[in-house]
């Protein structure tokens, strides 16, 4: 198929940020949810790193908030075909959470309040590629968007950025999560349009 070059320079610049099959949602931010929104009290909230690690690593909400946070401005891409540019978040890098954690694991299952799970290669969360964010556009992350905290892995389709995340289980083997067991792609690279298994 021929690649058509748009004559309008500004539009062309934005289009290069759109992965194949995606459209720019603009100022909108659709709420996609597969279940009721959890409302876990912050004094009951914790975040854990478990599985193939040297013991359990756990942070209460206060401890998590005290960890170094960094601003993140990224484009996000939902498998339902909308993309949103320049979303501004703040959160804790996975590198920070895994600092000092000894593991031979190659995979991660992120798990959330409400039972949601999603799987990723560990290498896709480290080296500045993944965060647990608690702030969106300078405000505490709203429950409908995954607050108090969600995973943010912007280089993969947004279902990998688990809402209401409560921990990471490090595993030796790849274990498909909620959508991955339903025929969605195991990896989910929007630039290769990996929406469904086999794509």
């Amino acid at each position: 198929m021929a690649v058509v070059s748009r004559g309008f320079h500004g539009r062309g610049r934005r289009d290069r940020r759109l992965p194949p099959g995606q459209r720019d949602i603009g100022d909108g931010f659709p709420v996609l949810t597969a279940g009721p929104t959890p409302h876990t009290p912050l004094d009951e909230w914790d975040f854990v790193v478990q599985g193939q690690v040297d013991g359990l690593h756990r942070w209460t909400w206060e401890e998590f908030r005290a960890l170094p946070h960094e601003p993140v401005t990224v484009d996000i891409h939902c498998v339902t075909s909308w993309s949103k540019f320049d979303t501004r978040w703040s959160g804790v890098a996975i590198d920070t959470l895994l600092d000092g954690v000894e593991t031979a694991a190659e995979y991660v299952v992120a798990f959330s309040d409400g039972g949601y799970t999603t799987n990723l290669p560990l290498a896709d969360l480290t080296e500045g590629q993944g965060w647990v964010v608690d702030t969106y556009e300078d405000e505490p992350l709203a429950p409908e968007h995954g607050g108090p905290a969600r995973l943010l892995v912007p280089h993969l389709y947004f279902w990998k950025s688990a809402k209401w995340v409560r921990g990471l289980a490090l595993t030796a083997f790849d274990e498909p999560g909620f959508w991955e067991t339903f025929g969605y792609h195991d990896y989910g690279d929007p630039w290769r349009e990996q929406r469904y298994a086999g794509d």
Partner: peptide, 11 residues
């Protein structure tokens, strides 16, 4: 019913 997800989820 949760239709506003990548697929319909029935709980």
């Amino acid at each position: 019913l949760y239709p506003d997800a990548p697929a319909l989820v029935v709980r």
